[in-house]
Design a protein around this nucleic acid. Sequence first.
DNA 1: GGGAAAAATGTTATCGATAACATCACTTCC
DNA 2: GGAAGTGATGTTATCGATAACATTTTTCCC
Lengths: 346, 346
Amino acid sequence: MSVPGTPPDHEPDTKKGASLAEVAKAAGVSRMTVSRVMRNEGRVADETRRRVLAEVERLGYVPNRIAAAFSADRASTLVGVCIPRLTSALFGELLESIDRALSRLGFQTMIGAHEDDPAAEAAWLRELLAWRPAGVLLTGRVHTPGATDMLRAATIPMVEMWDLNTTPLDVSIGLNHYDSGAEMARFMLSRGRRRIGYVGTARSPQTLAVKRASGFSDALRGAGVALQGSECLNDGASFYAGYYGMETLLNRVTNLDAIYCQNDEMAIGSLAYCSARGVRVPDDIGVAGWGGYQAAAILPRLLTTTAVPTRRIGKLSAEALVARLRGEPVADVQLVPAVLRPGATV
Amino acid sequence: MSVPGTPPDHEPDTKKGASLAEVAKAAGVSRMTVSRVMRNEGRVADETRRRVLAEVERLGYVPNRIAAAFSADRASTLVGVCIPRLTSALFGELLESIDRALSRLGFQTMIGAHEDDPAAEAAWLRELLAWRPAGVLLTGRVHTPGATDMLRAATIPMVEMWDLNTTPLDVSIGLNHYDSGAEMARFMLSRGRRRIGYVGTARSPQTLAVKRASGFSDALRGAGVALQGSECLNDGASFYAGYYGMETLLNRVTNLDAIYCQNDEMAIGSLAYCSARGVRVPDDIGVAGWGGYQAAAILPRLLTTTAVPTRRIGKLSAEALVARLRGEPVADVQLVPAVLRPGATV
DNA sequence: GGGAAAAATGTTATCGATAACATCACTTCC
DNA sequence: GGAAGTGATGTTATCGATAACATTTTTCCC
C-alpha cells in the first residue's frame, strides 16, 4: 500500500509511543510546558493547558516514568514489598492493605516472595534496588549481611514489618512473635493443660513461626512444664498438613491434652482429624492456632487462636513509609499487638 | 568533623551509589567494559573481568536498571501482572507460579489487583505502561475501550490468562468458565438432581464466576430444568459467605436437592451449615464447588468440584510471554481445561 | 615473520524528562 | 510613565547506561 514518493513520516512512527517532545511540537509549546501540564506543577495558562491536553489525548501520549525517574532520582514512585509467600491468606491481606494504601498515594509496588530464605530476600533486594525505589517494606526478620549493607547504602526509607524489631534499620512495625507464642503457652497452662504438643511445618530458625514455637516452649519450661512432643512436617502450612501432622503426633506421643498449631489452617486440619477419629475437642484434647483466620468462623466451636491485625500492620507500614519519604517524623518502633482470642477449643 | 581544607571528594559522595563511570575509573577501563562485565555480554578478558568485579564489590555498585531501560527501550525486564485480587488462594497460586517462572528468567513483576472492575484495570494499566514494561499478563476478561487502545498502542506482548478468549488481543491461555459451569450442571442432572440452586457473591457480569453461573443455568434450562433459586451475597467469596448464603437460600427456597457454589471456599462454608443443621450431604442435598481448593481434602467427604490447573496456567502464561518476547512462535489460543472431579458430595 | 582474522577494548551519540535558570509579557502602583 | 513585581513560558545541561561503530591488541597460520 505504500506509494513511492509519499512522505514517509506524516505522523511519527506508531511503533513507539509519542514522546513529550512530539506533544510539545504538536501543541506549539516547549517540552517544559508539557511536562508542567502533565505533573500539575508550576503555573500554566488555562488555554495552553487545554491545548496540550488535547494533543496528549489525540496522540495517546503515555508519560515515560523511566525517563522521569532517570532525570530526577528523587521522583521515584516505586516501592518494593517483600513477603514470605504469595499463597497465604494472611500475607495476601497484608499485601492487599499495603497495595491499596500505596496506590492511593500514587505509588507503584514491586512485590517479591522470599520463602523464608534470607538469601532469596537478598537476591530480590538486589534486583529491586537496581530500580532505585523510593522505599522498601520487608517482612524478613533476618537479613543477610549483604542485604543489610545494601539497605544501608541505599539510604532510602524502609519498614521492617510483621515481626517487631526493637533495633530496626529504620522503622519497624509489627508484633512480637516470640511473646505471642509465650502468651498461648500461659493460656493453655491456665486452662489446666499439662501434656502439650506442637504441630507445625517450619524448621528454619529464620521463620517467624519458629519464633512463636520457641516462645511457646520456653514459657512452658519456665512454668516447669516440658513440651511433650512436636511434629514439624516438611510441607506447606496447610489444612492437610495440620490433619496429617496431628495424626502423626498423636500416634507418636500418647496422652496429650493440648496442641498448639503453627497457624489456623493447620489447627482447622487438626480439628478435622479429631472429628474424623472421634477425638473430642476440647474435652479430650485442646487445639489452638494462630492468625485469626476468618475461615475459622464456620467451625462448630470458635477456634482458640491469636488474632493478628494484619491489615492494620499493612496500612500503618505503608503510611509510615510515605511519612518518612515526606520527611515527617515517624516512630522507629511501633508495636501492633496480636490478641489472644480464647475461643472454645482449649 | 569536617576539617576545612580537606579535599571534599576523595571518594564519591556516598549519598548516591557508585555509577558505572566510577567503577570504570577505579578499574582503569572504559564504561563499556564495565557494562559488558555486568551483563555478561560480549567478550572481556578474564583478568579485566576480575579487576572490574573487584571494584564493583569494593564500591558496592548496584546497576541502575532505570538508566539501562531508558538507554535501550527493548532491554526492559519488567512484566506487569494484573489479577482480580491478592487475597485468594487460587490467584495467590497463579501469581506465585508466574512470579517464580519470570524471576527465574530474570524478569521483575509489577503486580496489580483490579477487583473485577475494568476501570481499575485500565487505571493500573496506565500506571504500568508508564514504566514501559516488556510485557503484560492480564486476567480481566473484559477491558475498557481505553485499556484496549493502550494495549494495542503499546505493541508489547500480552497474555490474557484464566478465562479463555478465542479472539485475544495477542495470546490467551486459560479455561472456559461458561463451559465449566455448564459441565457441572450436566453432572448434577446426571446424578438425578432436579431442584437446583446457586450460591455466590459476584453480581457484575464482568466477573468470571458469573460466567460459570450463566453456563450452569443455561445448561440446566437447555435440559428443561429451571434454576430454582440463587443467592448472591454482597461480600467476599469466603467460607462464611458460603455458610450464610446457604442458610439464606435454604430458608427462602424449599426442597432444593443440589447447590452449586461459586467456589470451594463457599462450598465448604455451605457444608458447614448443613453439618450444623443436620442436613445430610449428599442424601438430602448435593453441594458442589469450583476451584479444586486443597483445603477440601480435610472434609469427611471428598468435595464435588472442578479442579483448576492454576499453576499450570501461570507457568504456561509466563513462558508464552517470554517466548513472544524472544520472537519465538506462540499459539494464540491455548485451552488449559479444568477437570470436574465427582467427589462424594453430589 | 608477516598479514589476516579474532579478541579485547574504547569513543560517541543517544534515549525522555526535568531542575535550574533565563526571558518575556503584562500588571500594578506610586 | 517607569520601576518593580508576577505570571507564563522557553533554554540548556543533565541523569547512567547502551548500541553501533571504531580502534587497538593478540592470536594463529602458512
